[in-house]
Simulated scan of single mutants.
Amino acid sequence: MSTGSPVGSHRVVSPAGALPQAAVRLDPDPEIRDDEVRVSVERLNLDAASFRQLRTKHGGDGAAIRAEVLAIIAARGKMQNPVTGSGGMLIGTVDAVGPRSPLGLESGQKIATLVSLTLTPLLITDGLERWDGESEQVPAAGTAILFGRSIAAPLPDDMPEALALAVFDVCGAPALVRRVVSRRYHSAPTVAVIGAAGKSGSLSLAAAKDAHAAKVVAVVRDQVEAAQMRRLGLADKVAVADATDPLALSHAVTEALRGRGADVTVVCVDVPGCEHGAVLATATGGTVVFFSMATSFPQAALGAEGLAADVEMLIGNGYVPGHADYALHLMNAHPRLKELFNTRIGAHA
Rank of each mutant, 00 (worst) to 15 (best):
S9K: 11
A16K: 14
A22F: 11
A22Q: 13
D29M: 13
D29A: 14
I32M: 01
V37M: 06
R38A: 11
L44H: 03
A48H: 07
A48S: 12
F51T: 02
T56M: 05
K57A: 12
V69Q: 09
A74D: 15
A75E: 14
Q80S: 11
N81Y: 00
S86F: 08
L90A: 05
G108L: 13
T113K: 08
S116M: 02
L119D: 06
L122D: 02
L128G: 01
E129A: 15
D132C: 08
G133M: 05
E136W: 09
I145E: 02
L146D: 05
E161H: 15
L163P: 01
A164R: 01
L165I: 06
F168P: 00
C171A: 09
A173M: 12
A173Y: 04
P174C: 10
V180L: 13
S182W: 01
Y185W: 13
S202K: 03
L203R: 02
A211I: 06
H212K: 14
A218L: 08
V219M: 02
M229H: 03
M229N: 01
P246R: 04
V253S: 03
L257K: 04
G261M: 00
C274Q: 02
E275M: 11
A278R: 08
T295K: 03
A304H: 03
G306L: 10
D310G: 06
L314A: 07
L314N: 06
H323C: 11
H323Q: 10
H329W: 10
H329L: 13
N332K: 15
A333H: 12
L337Q: 05
E339D: 12
L340K: 07
T343K: 13
R344F: 08
